[in-house]
Computed example of a mutant assay.
Amino acid sequence: MGEFDAIRPYNDTEVPAVLARLLADPAFLAVLARFRFPRLAGPLGWLLKPLIAHRLRREFGSSASVHSLQEKIEAYIDRTIDKATDGVTFSGTENLASGSAYLFLANHRDIVMDPAFVNYVVFHNGLKTPRIAIGDNLLQKPFVSDLMRLNKSFIVHRSITGRREKLASYQLLSAYINHSIREDGESIWIAQAEGRAKDGDDRTDSAILKMFHMSRKDEPFAEVIARLNLTPVSISYEYDPCDQAKARELYIRATTGTYEKAPGEDDASIALGITGYKGRVHLHFNSQPGATFEDAKQLAAEMDRQILTGYRLFPVHYLAYAQWQDADPQLQVPAASTLFGSAELEKATREWQRRLQACPEEQRPYLVMQYAMPVRNQYRIRAGLPL
């Protein structure tokens, strides 16, 4: 057994066997049947599942490598993006060179689509897609683990509670990330903090930056980070398909002190995040910080500065900020009407009002906060104020 077998993605030699296992998995086929034919999946599931398996076998059964599989999946991703967005734009790709491997550290709003959009941009710019960090809390069903590991995902063991076991897990993760970039020449995508920023406040957890160094403590921190080609990525959604669910969770946490996820809630978030309307999406690949940061705390502050300033603010963000009860009086934030054309602003106003009306009144402050927070953070950085 290899050092990283417990967490690594599947390699090319494993693809045919894993595909065969997936296409024989009743749970996987049942999910696809419900997704594709929601009204028929119950009474006719017994008929739909073998038909779906036959079609998938015909389309993907000949795939003999991860790359060939991703090439076929890319067409589905492109169609999903076309249906669920008003377009994807990107900037900063001049900071990326073909043949180099990068450690992409990104803000985190959506479980699946954050790394999917990075893959989309990287793939369409002729670069190799990164390996994707995914928490084991999302891999509760065997077929989900198979699917993600086929698509270059590696496992982050977040469910471990023992201090010694957690330390060993982070040590292994650190070694894998360093090995992937320095030895395999394969890029990595990882979120800047565990879990999505449900309140819109994108911040880098310095513990993640420390983890990158854990397996190479005999080397200076700054040198290890420089060798990893750490690249902060700003992912901006005009609208978050899960914003109502996030507002509800934030409200319940604020009023009761805790929040218990319902069975299948992560699955529902994944499905809504993939198919739900996002408006425009923009990705910005920031420049590498270089070897000038001596510790994780300093580096985290620089990651925040780059990610937050690289975030694209859409009209809805300014509309939300204008009605946010916690708006910062120190900041000179212009009105949306001074920044955007009337047609664009009218469209955004209609959509924003629709979302507000769909949200229970007591939860609306938490919906507003999600969209207003990026404005506050970006303008505080512009003004030279601490976050």
Rank of each mutant, 00 (worst) to 15 (best):
residue 243 D to G: 06
residue 207 A to V: 11
residue 215 S to P: 09
residue 282 H to E: 04
residue 71 E to N: 12
residue 308 L to Y: 01
residue 61 G to W: 01
residue 30 A to S: 15
residue 207 A to Q: 13
residue 141 K to F: 04
residue 89 T to M: 06
residue 386 P to Y: 02
residue 385 L to Y: 13
residue 353 Q to K: 08
residue 183 E to F: 00
residue 98 S to F: 04
residue 205 D to G: 08
residue 31 V to K: 14
residue 233 V to P: 00
residue 160 I to A: 12
residue 80 T to S: 13
residue 112 V to L: 14
residue 247 A to Y: 05
residue 136 D to C: 04
residue 24 A to S: 15
residue 83 K to M: 08
residue 118 V to G: 06
residue 340 F to K: 03
residue 255 T to Y: 02
residue 8 R to S: 13
residue 63 S to Q: 12
residue 164 R to V: 07
residue 187 S to K: 03
residue 48 L to W: 02
residue 43 P to I: 02
residue 248 R to K: 14
residue 93 T to G: 06
residue 260 E to R: 12
residue 341 G to Q: 10
residue 245 A to F: 00
residue 85 T to A: 11
residue 370 Q to L: 08
residue 358 A to I: 03
residue 127 L to Q: 14
residue 82 D to P: 01
residue 218 D to Q: 14
residue 40 L to C: 09
residue 268 A to P: 01
residue 175 A to C: 05
residue 381 I to A: 12
residue 113 M to T: 09
residue 210 K to H: 14
residue 202 D to P: 09
residue 119 N to D: 15
residue 304 D to R: 10
residue 308 L to M: 11
residue 358 A to N: 14
residue 111 I to A: 04
residue 244 Q to C: 01
residue 238 E to L: 04
residue 263 P to W: 03
residue 143 F to Y: 15
residue 52 I to T: 07
residue 94 E to W: 02
residue 151 N to R: 10
residue 166 K to L: 12
residue 296 A to K: 00
residue 221 F to R: 04
residue 152 K to W: 01
residue 369 M to G: 08
residue 354 R to M: 05
residue 124 H to F: 03
residue 334 P to G: 08
residue 336 A to S: 09
residue 196 R to H: 06
residue 260 E to N: 12
residue 99 G to V: 10
residue 357 Q to L: 02
residue 159 S to K: 09
residue 13 T to I: 01
residue 380 R to S: 11
residue 298 Q to P: 00
residue 241 P to W: 02
residue 146 D to R: 09
residue 148 M to I: 11
residue 6 A to M: 09
residue 161 T to L: 05
residue 2 G to R: 06
residue 212 F to P: 02
residue 72 K to W: 04
residue 245 A to T: 10
